[in-house]
Design a protein around this nucleic acid. Structure first.
Length: 819
RNA sequence: GCCUGGGUGGCGGAACUGGUAGACGCAAGGGACUUAAAAUCCCUCGAUCCUCGUGGUCGUACGGGUUCGAUUCCCGUCUCAGGCACCA
């Protein structure tokens, strides 16, 4: 303390000996990589191609979060390994840069979203470069660039021309604060996902994409792809295929039939009432005939004020009103049954109406109990005094021609009957809904259509694309709930491209999902101004070999992008039906408190700070070491210290390298074993154990007086995908000779040599560990038993008893069952 | 309520297709080096009991089961996280 100068000098000397200067080394190598073309994918190559993809980020104003790089570093390791394995690798990056935060900021400050987006991108780019990720920066894409969104509009127009884009008036989620329609997916907890304001339902003409036409193929083709099982399950459940029947019930008062979808037509004799969603069109037809129109109107209004989540919350009490005086007729029993409306039935699933079978459906049971509706048991086996009986292995009762059958057999028989009677038929139903594609926002791709008084909706000619976002001064949206664009009459008023008459531009813009539904195609040919990407480049690079991203995107983004890709396939523009061969996911990085990182919790860790203190290599290795890649893991800056020590230990191996030393047999085994294990663990994304393997190997090397060059080279190569800067420096200083680490081939191993020569075997008596012995690898049971029988503890254990059974698992255990 | 994934030392986490539970790292304690500190290196480190050993018992959320043997498989329960659209 008294003499800071000498203190610092001592410190500096020590640092020279024990630690490396990460700042200097990382700057040096990043500068070298920046000017070189190491990471650029070659457009044509004799090497096999490999396309590694991460989800491109939304460049938020908060900057990079320690969670982002987990996926990037993981795939960077894969990409680097592939390059060393001789592949021509495409590992691109870009920006999913349309989005509400920039627009909300613009509304508040008057600063153009483009300006703030540009700043945010610059910051993200700086942070990503600081981490030494091997992205091909020459292929960067930005969804807000007109040269990019031109093609987003172009793809939309093709969808429109094929009849897959249509306008429909449907109740949508309406954010009372943002004044925009939200997809159901964007409503979280009954409030707007982005602004937190309450969401109500409001009728609005929306552009829709007919993704449901692709439901079957989106489901079927999951068989062909290598996705993690849980991801496939999620896709499958989201698409939600179910087999059942559409049945028609007469409603004499309005002289029409009411269709319902049911998976349980076997219970038809127990259908004692029907329930319509409050938005069901039959209500309008019946409103003049019912005895209680005011009550019904009031209920509809109440339902509209609730979000879908509130409506579907099972814990809440069921509500509803009867359409008094407008009953239906049960086609099987001929009985007159009441029709109710209730918000537990959703207009968006099935036909928006159900036949209620209270005895055998839990929700219907609750509803019937609450409103004292008739409950008729038609399947025996449960106790309908207490609860609904929903099993399929009961026997049919009170069910006419179905009596005596098992419920599961009665399903088909019931449908046969309906088909014969012409009152219904077998159908398949999907949970998947069409995609609401309209947003009443400024900061999105304009939808390139005009509405002509004579011709209706007409596409803007391709050669006029992109339809640019107009320059504006203020970003306040129209209070009518239209986008800001609607207020710009100069922009809106236009000429019909077909008849030349008066027309108006569409003022809705596209959702953020649009740009991200095809960005991976653009990476194949990012600067093309003649096509979204050339066929040759698409054929070369697609499909993506490995796509890693968060679980939160494994339903929507994955499904939407698969849908667009399938559409492009149908248009003959790409040559494979699926865009991604393999899809994996990573776990979230939580705050040190184990909670999700967020500003409000104050537990956000900034990568700049960590990189500044420990360096990028340490940051990268720690992100891989902190826990299983696919599970959530809490951040621990204390834990970073351990990784920092490890890299310094690896650095210090350099001082022991001896070019003349030849690896011993044991050392050769260690080399091969480590190559095998590290390689396997990268391929299976068990990065944390790959790192621990490298730590063990490093400690091994440090235990020798002289480290053979081959061992050192192996360490550098295996560690380089994780810690590219420090290994590059170690390599240059020690191996040198103009050989560049990045261009070294990934080493191969001999599985025979990777085996240990001697192994520790567990000796068990009756399945309990007695002791361990050291034996040669591959020793036979007879030889093992000879050794085991001489062990004093074993002798004592079997004294006076007999060995009933011997279980020998080679190289692992021998178990004596003694009685 | 439904779907998916978890629950292992003080902490983060390992454990191949059922075969020595706790690899690797953090923290902690002890020691070496140092005038001192930092850094570094070495040792100990699941709980508990005793006769302190080359010992006994318990231990992978909980309760059962299968097995020579279960963190791993089966049944049931609790609990945490994420997702959700009452799937009729």
């Amino acid at each position: 303390m008294s003499d800071p100068d000498s203190h610092n000098n001592i410190r500096k000397k020590r640092d020279m000996a024990d630690t490396y200067d990460f700042q200097e080394i990382e700057q040096k190598w990043q500068a070298r990589w920046e000017t070189g073309t190491y990471y650029q994918a070659e457009s044509s190559s004799s090497k096999p191609k490999y396309y590694a993809l991460i989800e491109f980020p939304y460049p938020s104003s908060e900057g990079l979060h320690v969670g982002h790089p987990r996926s990037y570093v993981g795939m960077d390791i894969v990409a680097r390994k592939r390059r060393m394995e001789g592949y021509n690798v495409l590992f691109p990056i870009g920006w999913d840069a349309f989005g509400l935060p920039a627009e909300n900021y613009a509304i508040k400050t008057g600063i153009h979203p483009r300006v703030i987006t540009r700043q945010n991108i610059a910051n993200f780019r700086r942070q990503l470069k600081m981490l030494g990720l091997s992205f091909d920066w020459s292929r960067e894409v930005d969804t807000t660039d007109p040269n990019y969104y031109k093609w987003t509009q172009w793809i939309f127009l093709r969808l429109f021309k094929r009849g897959l884009a249509y306008k429909a008036e449907i109740p949508i989620n309406w954010c009372t604060s943002c004044k925009v329609g939200l997809a159901n997916e964007e409503v979280v907890g009954g409030v707007c996902e982005r602004c937190g304001a309450p969401v109500v339902r409001k009728a609005k003409k929306q552009w829709m994409l007919a993704i449901t036409k692709y439901a079957e193929r989106l489901l079927e083709d999951l068989r062909e792809v290598d996705y993690l099982e849980k991801i496939k399950t999620q896709q499958t459940n989201w698409i939600g295929k179910s087999y059942g029947a559409e049945l028609r019930f007469e409603v004499p008062a309005v002289n029409r039939t009411l269709s319902v979808f049911t998976t349980r037509p076997d219970t038809i004799f127990g259908a004692t009432y029907m329930v319509l969603s409050p938005e069901h069109p039959l209500i309008e037809e019946a409103i003049g005939k019912v005895e209680n129109p005011d009550e019904i109107r009031a209920y509809q209004k109440l339902a509209a004020s609730k979000s879908e989540l509130e409506r579907t919350d099972l814990a809440k009490d069921k509500t509803g009103v009867e359409l008094k005086g407008v009953p239906a007729i049960n086609p099987a029993t001929g009985e007159t049954i009441p029709i109710w409306i209730s918000d537990y039935v959703l207009i968006s699933y099935g036909t928006g109406a159900i036949m209620a079978v209270p005895a055998h459906d839990t929700r219907d049971y609750e509803f019937a109990r609450k409103f004292n509706l008739k409950i008729v048991e038609v399947i025996s086996g449960g106790d309908i005094e207490k609860e609904a009986y929903t099993e399929l292995d009961g026997v049919m009762v009170n069910s006419g021609f179905l009596n005596g059958m098992l419920a599961k057999d009665a399903i088909s028989k019931a449908i046969d009957w309906f088909e014969r009677e012409g009152k219904g038929e077998r159908t398949v139903n999907y949970k998947l809904r069409d995609w609401v594609f309209s947003r009443q926002r400024y900061w999105g791709e304009p939808i390139p259509l005009v509405e002509c008084e004579k011709c209706g909706w007409v596409p803007i000619p391709e050669e006029e694309l992109p339809v640019l976002l107009p320059e504006v001064e203020s970003f306040i949206p129209s209070s009518e709930g239209e986008s800001l664009l609607a207020t710009l009459s100069d922009w809106v008023d236009t000429m019909c491209p077909v008849c030349g008459g008066k027309a108006k531009k569409e003022t809705d813009t596209m959702p953020q999902w649009a740009g991200s539904s095809w960005y991976f195609h653009r990476y194949a040919d990012p600067h093309n101004d003649k096509a979204f990407a050339s066929r040759a480049n698409l054929d070369y690079w697609m499909p993506v070999d490995w796509y890693n991203g968060g679980m939160e995107h494994t339903t929507l983004h994955l499904l939407y992008s698969r849908f667009w890709h399938k559409f492009l396939f149908d248009e003959g523009l790409v040559s494979t039906p699926e865009p991604y061969i393999k899809r994996t996911s990573h776990g979230m990085i939580l705050g040190a408190d184990g909670e999700k990182m967020s500003k409000s919790r104050g537990n956000v860790v900034n990568p700049d700070e960590i990189v500044g203190r420990f360096g990028a290599d340490t940051f990268r290795v720690y992100e891989m070491f902190m826990g299983a890649f696919d599970l959530a893991a809490p951040w621990s800056t204390e834990g970073v210290v351990g990784v920092s020590r490890f890299l310094n230990r690896a650095w210090s191996v350099m001082a022991k390298v001896d070019g003349n030393a030849v690896p011993t047999q044991e050392q050769t085994r260690a080399i091969h074993r480590t190559i095998m294990r590290v390689g396997e663990r990268i391929e299976t994304m068990k990065f944390n154990t790959a790192v621990s393997e490298l730590m063990t190997f490093t400690s091994d090397l440090l235990s020798y007086d002289k480290v053979p060059m081959e061992m050192f080279r192996t360490l550098c190569i295996l560690l380089s995908p994780f810690a590219p800067h420090v290994t590059a420096e170690m390599w240059e200083r020690t191996v040198g000779e103009g050989r560049v680490l990045l261009e070294e081939p990934w080493p191969s191993f001999d599985p025979e040599l990777a085996k240990a020569q001697t192994v520790t075997m567990a000796v068990q008596i009756n399945g309990k560990l007695s002791e361990t012995i050291s034996i040669d690898w591959g020793m036979t049971q007879d030889d093992v038993l000879k050794i085991v029988h001489d062990l004093p503890k074993v002798k004592r254990a079997i004294d006076g008893k007999s060995v009933k059974k011997v279980i020998h698992v080679p190289n692992k255990i021998v178990n004596l069952v003694v009685k």
